[in-house]
Amino acid sequence: MLIPVEDGPAIVACNTCRHSADAREDSAGTRGGAQLVAALRQVQESDARYAGVAVQEMPCLFACTDFCTIHLRAPGKVGYVLGRFTPDEDAATAILDYAVHYAASEHGRVPFKQWPQGVKGHFITRTPPQGFVAE
């Protein structure tokens, strides 16, 4: 049931997420999560700045009402679940831009002034790293 992945900064995207609050799939029958994964990988491949953040995918992060959901995580850092994205290049760029700041941070906290506009309002939860709680 578990698949080993690289243990570094990563965006784990739900590949089965709904396309939007109102639709499970787009007009071609593709789920939003699969579209977001494809957009994340395409944007990542287009810019070397994103090489230090893995794009991983898995089915269902159990945040179904918040469609197009990702989990941002790294060892020893607070993690975040974000959702309600449009599965496109703009969202993927904002997520990856934030992930670069996150990966460079000491504990996973990125100053608000560094947040790309495209992630503001998309945070759902924050999760403590194993063996820690946040202050």
Rank of each mutant, 00 (worst) to 15 (best):
E135F: 06
S20I: 14
Q117F: 08
T69R: 01
V53I: 14
I3W: 04
E6W: 06
K120E: 01
K113M: 05
P75D: 03
G32N: 08
Y80G: 11
P87Y: 03
A74E: 02
T65N: 12
G52V: 15
P128L: 02
P116T: 05
H122N: 06
N15Q: 11
Y102E: 00
V43W: 02
E57R: 13
A48T: 13
A51K: 12
P59V: 00
G29P: 05
T86V: 15
H107R: 15
G52D: 15
N15A: 07
L36T: 05
P75Y: 04
V43R: 15
G79Y: 04
P129D: 12
E106Y: 08
G79I: 10
H107K: 14
V100F: 11
G32A: 10
G121T: 04
G108I: 13
P116F: 09
T65R: 13
G118R: 02
I11W: 11
A38E: 14
V12G: 00
L82H: 14
F132H: 12
A39H: 02
P75C: 04
A23V: 07
F132N: 09
D66V: 10
G108P: 14
A94Y: 13
Y98W: 15
K77G: 14
A103C: 12
T16F: 00
A63S: 09
L2D: 12
I95R: 03
G33D: 09
A63T: 11
E6C: 07
Q114D: 15
S105H: 04
P129E: 11
D47I: 02
L82D: 12
H101K: 04
G76L: 09
P75F: 03
L96W: 04
P4G: 07
V110G: 12
A28Q: 07
V119D: 06
C17D: 08
R31L: 14
D90F: 03
V37L: 08
A134I: 10
R31E: 13
R126V: 08
V37S: 01
K113V: 06
A134Y: 00
E6L: 11
G79W: 06
V100W: 10
R73T: 09
P9F: 04
P116V: 08
G33S: 08
A10E: 15
C60M: 04
Q56M: 10
E25M: 06
G29A: 03
E25T: 11
A13S: 13
A134S: 09
A74G: 13
Q56D: 10
V100D: 03
E6G: 09
